[in-house]
């Protein structure tokens, strides 16, 4: 797959933004400036950027608890995102949601989700709504290997195929449902083969190869946009960090983590673009510097933003807000 310099720069910038954003969020957490928890997707950047890049600007996404990359790939405002991590009044969710609930419905991001398997039943409804509205929009719904074992997955896939909803499902198999290894019950190929059981196309790809993810998702998008019902893409990938901040990494070895770090999606895309002479080392350094500056601005914005006023605590439970 060939990409232009401009496009390559955009993909690389987004992957760097995700990586640097999460590294900064982690630093701020360690410094005690962000509380709660967070689910980092470092190591999975190609899956987020590759798949979302197959969508048009009016298309929608539904994300997961590990959704920072999806948000950034969909064009989220990094300042509002970081302010939300800091729990600030001008964050995406006015400090009500935090890292796990960032949404921007107006720009097509229908939200991350704190429940594993919580997004896929909604995806059916979004798809049903889009089909009824008939404006040519489609939805890309992320879930993980953990959600694939839930009953919600079976109900959602059944209804999706029954109603032929315009939804591309992207399963990010990052190998672990918290500590439970997905290879104890399935593989990325196995996950993709579920699609055939329900009667839709499914494909498993190397989720750390941005262009492979993009190509497979574009194929799925074309299928869905042409009115053929849903499709599934499984991205085989790996999270470098723990499930959340409570993770002690007792269920996997350092050797395993290091082996996956050798398959760093950012390094792979970078090297491929240098090989193809699409980007130079100088271009890449500039892009990385841009991402660093963007995240630093987001951090400064977040840190200088106000906390929500306690007097507003009970606002916004009901419409209008």
């Amino acid at each position: 797959m060939e990409v232009t310099k401009e496009i390559a720069e955009q993909y690389l910038l987004q992957m760097y933004q995700i990586r640097v954003f999460e590294e900064q969020a982690e630093k701020s957490y360690m410094a005690g400036k962000i509380h709660g928890t967070m689910h980092l997707s470092i190591g999975q950047e190609a899956s987020a950027v590759g798949s979302v890049s197959a969508l048009g600007p009016k298309d929608l996404i539904l994300s997961t608890h590990r959704g920072h990359g999806h948000c950034i790939a969909k064009g989220a405002d990094l300042k509002l995102m970081m302010a939300e991590f800091y729990g600030k009044a001008n964050g995406y969710c006015r400090g009500r949601g935090g890292s796990m609930h960032i949404a921007d419905v107006a720009s097509g991001n229908l939200g991350a989700n704190g429940v594993v398997g919580g997004g896929i039943p909604m995806a059916v409804g979004v798809g049903l709504g889009l089909k009824m509205q008939n404006e040519g929009k489609i939805l890309l719904s992320f879930f993980g290997d953990g959600a694939a074992s839930t009953g919600a997955f079976h109900e959602s896939m059944t209804l999706s195929v029954l109603y032929q909803v315009p939804v591309v499902y992207v399963c990010e198999n990052n190998q672990y449902a918290m500590s439970f290894p997905s290879n104890k019950w399935t593989t990325s190929e196995g996950l993709a083969s579920f699609a055939a059981c329900y009667g839709m196309p499914g494909k498993s790809v190397d989720g750390n190869d941005l262009l492979a993810v993009l190509e497979a998702t574009e194929e799925a998008v074309e299928h869905v946009r042409n009115g053929n019902g849903p499709a599934l893409v499984v991205c085989d990938t790996y999270r470098w960090r723990g499930h959340s901040k409570s993770d002690r990494n007792r269920y996997r070895s350092q050797e395993e983590i290091d082996a996956w770090k050798e398959k760093d999606p950012i390094e792979r895309f970078k090297n491929h673009m240098i090989e193809k002479k699409t980007l130079t080392i100088d271009d890449i350094e500039k892009i990385k510097a841009q991402a660093d500056a963007d995240i630093e601005n987001a951090r400064l914005f977040a840190e200088s933003s106000p906390d929500p006023d306690v007097s507003t605590l009970e606002e916004g439970v009901y419409a209008p807000w």
């Binding site: 229908l110 039943p121 909604m122 059916v124 979004v126 049903l128 109900e155 059944t158 209804l159």
Partner: peptide
């Protein structure tokens, strides 16, 4: 599919139905 029905309603409402 009770969970599916509730999800379908939740999602459809989210996009304006």
């Amino acid at each position: 599919t009770e969970l599916g029905i509730a999800g379908a309603a939740t999602g459809a409402a989210l996009v304006g139905m």
